[in-house]
Amino acid sequence: MVDMPRTDPGAGISRPAGWEGIVADWSSDQRAFKNVSWGKAMMWIFLLSDTFIFSCFLLSYMTVRMSTVEPWPNPSEVFALNIGGRHIPLILIAIMTFILISSSGTMAMAVNFGYRRDRFRSASLMLATALLGATFVGMQAFEWSKLIAEGVRPWGNPWGAAQFGSSFFMITGFHGTHVTIGVIFLLIMSRKVFRGDFDRERRGFFTSRKGNYEIVEIMGLYWHFVDLVWVFIFALFYLW
């Protein structure tokens, strides 16, 4: 921190709170985000832009679903599975939801243990998060293969409106890509934490800058966002 004065998060002066605080923080030629480092602020702004991307996907899905004259395939039936001779609707998606929520829980605790400088627990929880994320992607791959085998294509499917396939592959594909990228970064971060990079201020291989445990929280922001997007996809695409 000492040799990076530009990332000083706001010099510890007491600031007004509430609406006055918003005006005071944003007015005049100064930093708007007082006690947030540039890394965290930039991750939030990236997530904001990603929000708009997923919003556009969900909006186009809404538009094609509302304007089609063909019946929309019933997701409850499409994503049902036969387990032990019983036909359970939407069960695969429910399990995927619980897995992703659990990975968010382990990630939140990894951040907490990171700030406590308990690097073994922090790294193991991040590893657990990565494993849960990989499980999620695996189940998504299973779901895709099942649907492709049943004849779902971006241009048509056996049950109704052709737009079902294109919306499905676009939305879940983009989300799955985000999860995959998250898993890769979790593995990298987990290794860095386990090795004690942030205790010994080892310089990063890419940026050549010293890191600290806030990087775990920034990683966490990305991971929770992936979970957050799934909350919306689950509600609007699978349950609607």
Partner: peptide
């Protein structure tokens, strides 16, 4: 998720409203 897991509940309002 946003309030607790992403710690938005403890951030300054300037960031919260911006996001």
């Amino acid at each position: 998720i946003v309030a607790v897991f992403m710690h938005m509940a403890w951030e300054r309002l300037a960031l919260l409203y911006a996001i």
